[in-house]
Design a protein around this nucleic acid. Structure first.
Length: 516
DNA sequence: GGATCCGTTGTAGCT
DNA sequence: AAGCTACAACGGATC
């Protein structure tokens, strides 16, 4: 009697799931226990490191995973909280028989890597015979460890570099596309569900929902813009990719902003798939292949702007997160220039995080982030530039933490990579003098209704009666306009926390002084 | 080996 | 009113 413990770490899905499929198909396995280990997750939520939307989304994902495992494979997902290593040990102590397996996916994060090696070490000592089977490239296209240990590997910092790495790892087919494996279908045979009766740290979905309600009682009735889980992910894939050939072929990341900043925040102008990629509700391989199907039918954009390009940047950050020491630090990180950022200023940081800087475009973005867990990529550029080298001169790690807490697509490798990039401290192409204007719509001065202005009215309702001409810098509006717009600046909406032109000039000089 | 090009997405001010 | 120009000027790859 041999049992496989199938440990879902990043990939909360049953399609294209190599470790689950292996357990279902292997002759060596008689029964299966699917598990998800919260590890320190609940502590992070309680400590305020993970916010409402992220927690809510994860619970959704787990619920759908549980239901799919039950409905389609007659397996019961077990969820445990507390230390992951201790969970694994007690699960195996309660398993009968020998030749039991632990099938899990590779994890790139420091804590995950440490757990992997601790588990391997423990498995070699355990008399209960736990055979560890680690599956690489479940959450990424590349096998991260294999790629970075290749003698030809070097830290990539451009799309050209990534293309070289892809060429070294994948053959190119007769159409000129990388030969990336087809996704694995949902296993069509299953095994019996092994019964592990450990009650210690066992936690149910309804207990998680209770916890969510206890921690965020005033947010439970909010509208949820993204529903978590594999079903929603596959549905979105079908809606936005499979049935949208033109959209896929024309996709160009820098030019997706014209349609996003409207009053329909539930439908981004990009794919809106990022929360599902982060949680592994959709497999990146499947997304890659779906894009390729559209590409085969005509002209299409290319990396870096294309959807394949976006996925390649994700691979780039996963590689760097492993090959660059201190990837998430602003010191002792070869990918981070030493900038003399100001001390953490909690007043400034609070106004940035809560959308009360007095810069409506910035505030609208930050309020959208808090309510929906999502922000358009150009908004991310604007608010991160504002926080760091543009205006506030705060360390990028402070902004990174806020994104980590609130973004549904928060991903350790990608989030840090993007902040390094946007703060201008990484060796990626970001000339430091390219500073984004926090009041960006030149048309507003002509009193033209713009998408940006409507976007601000949607998310900063204090300003909903303001004319476009003044909506980016409402403190410049004459008092008569403020009165007729029912919003007195400094009273109903904050005055700007800083002089954007003055800080821009000073910071440009400081940045230059820091790097030369 | 010095010059030139390039890098996923700039801004301000003028006409 | 969109398009031009000046700004400020990194750092590695390529020729």
């Amino acid at each position: 009697m041999s049992t496989a413990v199938v440990w879902f770490r990043n990939s909360l899905r049953i399609h294209d799931n190599p470790f689950l499929s292996w357990a279902c198909n292997s002759e060596e396995v008689d029964s299966i226990v699917p598990v998800f280990l919260l590890d320190g997750y609940l502590t992070s939520v309680r400590d305020g490191e993970i916010g409402f939307n992220r927690f809510r989304f994860l619970v959704d994902c787990l619920k759908v995973l549980r239901d799919n495992l039950e409905k389609k494979m007659n397996l019961e997902l077990k969820i445990y909280t507390g230390g992951a290593l201790r969970n694994i040990e007690s699960i195996f102590q309660n398993l009968d028989g020998e030749n039991n397996f632990l099938a899990y996916e590779y994890c790139n994060k420091p804590r995950g890597l440490m757990l992997s090696s601790q588990i391997t070490e423990w498995s070699m000592k355990t008399p209960k015979n736990c055979i560890v089977k680690s599956f690489p490239a479940v959450h990424t296209l590349l096998d991260i460890e294999k790629t970075i240990s290749s003698p030809t590997y070097f830290d990539p910092k451009s799309m050209k570099n990534m293309e070289r790495i892809f060429m070294n790892n994948f053959d190119v087919d007769s159409f000129g596309y990388y030969n990336i494996n087809e996704p694995i279908p949902v296993p069509n045979k299953t095994k019996t569900n092994a019964n592990v009766s450990i009650s210690v740290n066992d936690i149910s979905i309804s207990e998680l929902e209770l916890e969510l309600g206890t921690l965020f009682p005033d947010r439970l009735n909010e509208r949820h813009y993204f529903r978590g889980g594999e079903d929603e992910a596959l549905d979105r894939l079908s809606r936005k990719i499979a049935k949208q050939e033109d959209f896929v072929n024309r996709f160009s990341k820098p030019r997706t902003c014209s349609t996003n900043l409207d009053d329909n925040p539930s439908e981004p102008s990009t794919t809106g798939l990022s929360p599902y990629i982060t949680t592994g509700c959709i497999s990146v391989r499947m997304l890659w292949k779906e894009c390729e199907k559209a590409y085969l039918n005509g002209e299409h954009t290319k990396p870096p702007e294309s959807l394949h390009g976006q996925l390649m940047f994700r691979e780039m950050f996963y590689l760097l997160s492993r090959s660059v020491d201190n990837w998430d630090k602003s010191t002792n990180n070869i990918n981070c220039k030493n900038i003399n950022w100001d001390e953490y200023d909690s007043e400034k940081m609070d106004s940035w995080e809560s959308g009360m800087t007095g810069f409506p475009y910035i505030d609208a973005m930050m309020r959208q982030l808090d309510e929906t867990g999502w922000m358009h990529h150009l908004g991310r550029h604007a608010v991160s530039c504002f926080l760091t080298r543009g205006q506030m001169w705060q360390n990028w790690t402070a902004g990174r933490d806020v994104f980590e807490k609130k973004l549904l697509d928060a991903d350790w490798a990608v989030n840090n990579g993007n902040w390094l990039w946007l703060a201008g401290v990484a060796p990626f192409s970001m000339p430091y003098y390219r500073i984004y204007n926090p009041c960006p719509d030149s048309k507003s001065s002509l009193n033209v209704e713009t998408k940006h202005a409507n976007f601000i009215r949607r998310w900063v309702p204090e300003l909903r009666f303001f004319p476009s001409k003044y909506i980016f810098e409402p403190h410049l509006a004459p008092l008569s306009i403020q009165i007729s717009s029912k919003c007195i600046i400094g009273d109903d909406y904050p005055l700007p926390i800083l002089d954007r032109k003055k800080t821009r000039k000073e910071n440009l000089a400081r940045f230059k002084a820091s790097i030369t």
